[in-house]
């Protein structure tokens, strides 16, 4: 009797979320799945075309370019960002005078509106008068027009994204603070140096936080939109056209809702598959305390 009443109470209390998920997430996702099998220009009703949209992807050169660009951005920001964030967190956890100020400085960029941050970095990267080139000139290096050069535009965006690394740093820091002191003392008794101790004690103990951050940053980097949309508009010569930007343009600029929906569903499947691979693959390396 009580179990039944609790079931109804539980459902009632969680109903806002359940309802919202159905209305704003599941129904749109289902609509999107349906549209992905149609040709739909918004003006005329959707026309069923079967798997044509998915078949078209294989032949769409821009699609493959966009996939490669997104993969490059994700690889760059995760592979560089993860060790960088762990390193910064370790440095800040040394807890000397001033380290909490430095932590605030490292964290602050995550709060800056992404539009303002992107515009600020456009100015830093500006070809003629930008700070990056002014600093390079000081050491006698000739700068480039970073964002307008197909060779440097994507690396420039990755470097900018590394500036917004505050959240993982804070999460790693919290995980490091949770490592029991006794383990460090044991490591000292065993005669481990700082580097060995970091690899043998700290890293295994923070591995759940590493896994969490890697999964989150993979998901985030596959969805990156605002930074390339604002800083480079996907250019030059499509060098920074990323997946989300391509979906947006296909849907709203070219009014191809059907193809855009197919692209979006492929993105969802890729995201889920990658997250699953990372979580399963990391099982051997992630150490959970019981």
């Amino acid at each position: 009797m009580t179990a039944r009443r609790d079931l109804w109470a539980g459902l009632a209390w969680t109903s806002p979320f359940l309802l919202g998920t159905v209305v704003f997430l599941l129904i749109p996702a289902a609509m999107s799945l349906y549209f992905s099998f149609t040709e739909y220009s918004l003006i005329e009703p959707p026309l069923f075309v079967g798997l044509d949209n998915y078949r078209h992807m294989a032949r769409d050169g821009l699609f493959w370019k966009v996939v490669a660009n997104t993969a490059a951005f994700a690889l760059g920001s995760v592979l560089v960002g993860t060790p960088l964030a762990i390193g910064i967190a370790a440095l800040l956890e040394a807890r000397v005078r001033g380290s909490s100020f430095v932590r605030a400085v490292v964290f602050f960029p995550t709060l800056v509106p992404i539009v303002a941050a992107s515009i600020g970095w456009m100015w830093l990267y500006a070809g003629e008068h930008g700070l990056v080139n002014r600093l390079l000139a000081l050491v006698g290096v000739r700068g480039r027009d970073w964002l307008n050069d197909p060779a440097t535009a994507m690396p420039a965006l990755i470097a900018m994204s590394l500036w917004i690394i505050g959240s993982p740093v804070v999460i790693y820091g919290a995980a490091m603070r949770d490592v029991p002191r006794s383990l460090y003392e044991a490591a000292d008794l065993d005669g481990m140096g700082p580097a060995t101790r970091f690899c043998n004690v700290t890293l295994p103990m923070i591995s759940p936080a590493v896994l969490f951050n890697v999964v989150v940053s993979i998901i985030w980097s596959l969805q990156v939109f605002a930074v390339p949309a604002i800083m480079t508009k996907g250019g030059p010569n499509e060098a920074t056209n990323v997946y989300a930007l391509y979906v947006y343009r296909t849907a709203f600029d070219y009014a191809q809702m059907g193809y855009a929906s197919a692209l979006a569903w492929v993105q969802l499947l890729i995201t889920l598959a990658l997250a699953l691979i990372v979580v399963l693959g990391a099982r051997r390396f992630v150490h959970y305390r019981s």
Binding site: A29, F35, V247, A264
Partner: peptide
């Protein structure tokens, strides 16, 4: 859920 998947619908 990526925003791109649901933004158009």
């Amino acid at each position: 859920m990526p925003f791109t998947v649901i933004m158009a619908p």
